[in-house]
């Protein structure tokens, strides 16, 4: 990251065909997110936050403009290069966890390391570390259907964090959780952000999440409406 930026978007536009016309999901987004930020895209449904998250995660391509993620312009990446970017540097956390149901907790968390060709001993250590971060060291052999929603999301966090990525993208991570579990999850992520220096970018409209964010980027109809940075107790941003 030459300029300390993890994400930079310039006049980012994303349009979807709807019938004979088109729907503009993102309309000229200019955004810069630096290393170690704990930021969130906030807005109602249809405001474009998931679309922006998908483009930043190189799962989707912009219609025009550019998104540079970890110094790599997303629109110029081939399918293989985009997969490589996600594999090496980005962790995803989804609203509905997206765990592999037939795999155990250990195997789910191990999956990104298998893609990165870590050896067995390293994988075991890294998976155990990740599970201890989220407090699930005793559930390694359980399968997702045997876990509660909060536990599933903690497995998803461990899976996203196990390879110590530069960037974690979390799409509505607490939408299916109760208040206690939500706070638990958010505290875990906040700790990981602080201790590992990982950049977190959320897409959310959940007040519980918003209260934890250090930077709040409000989206309305595909545009950035306002961008607020939380001040600490010393009044510093």
């Amino acid at each position: 990251m030459e300029n300390g930026l993890v994400i930079e978007t310039k006049k980012l536009v994303k349009k979807f065909p709807v019938g004979k016309g088109e729907f503009i999901a993102l309309n000229g987004i200019d955004l810069k997110i630096g290393k170690g930020e704990f930021a969130g895209l906030i807005g109602p449904s249809g405001s474009g936050k998931t679309t922006l998250l998908n483009i930043i995660g190189s799962l989707d391509m912009p219609s025009s403009g550019e998104a540079v993620v970890l110094d790599r312009p997303v629109s110029t990446l081939s399918s293989r290069e985009a997969a490589s970017l996600r594999k090496e540097s980005i962790g995803f956390i989804f609203q509905s966890y997206n765990l592999l149901a037939v795999h155990t907790v250990f195997e789910n968390v191990e999956f990104p390391l298998l893609l990165l060709n870590y050896n067995s001993a390293d994988r075991r250590k890294m998976v155990n570390d990740a599970l201890s971060w989220v407090g699930l060291s005793d559930k390694t052999r359980s399968k997702p259907p045997q876990l509660s929603g909060g536990e599933c999301q903690r497995v998803a966090i461990a899976r996203a964090m196990v390879k110590k990525p530069s960037l974690v993208l979390a799409d509505e991570p607490t939408a299916n959780l109760d208040a206690a579990n939500s706070h638990n999850i958010l505290t875990t992520m906040e700790t990981l952000n602080r201790e590992l220096g990982t950049t977190f970018l959320f897409a959310t409209h959940d007040e519980k999440v918003i209260s934890y964010l250090k930077r709040k980027i409000f989206l309305v109809d595909g545009r950035i409406d306002r961008d607020e940075v939380k001040q600490n107790q010393n009044g510093e941003k």
Binding site: R80, A83, R86, F92, N98, L115, L116, R159
Partner: peptide, 15 residues
């Protein structure tokens, strides 16, 4: 969803 997850975790569609 599983297919999407594989891709999000770093698989290409052809993989």
């Amino acid at each position: 969803k599983e297919i999407g997850t594989y891709i999000a975790l770093g698989y290409t569609r052809h993989q």
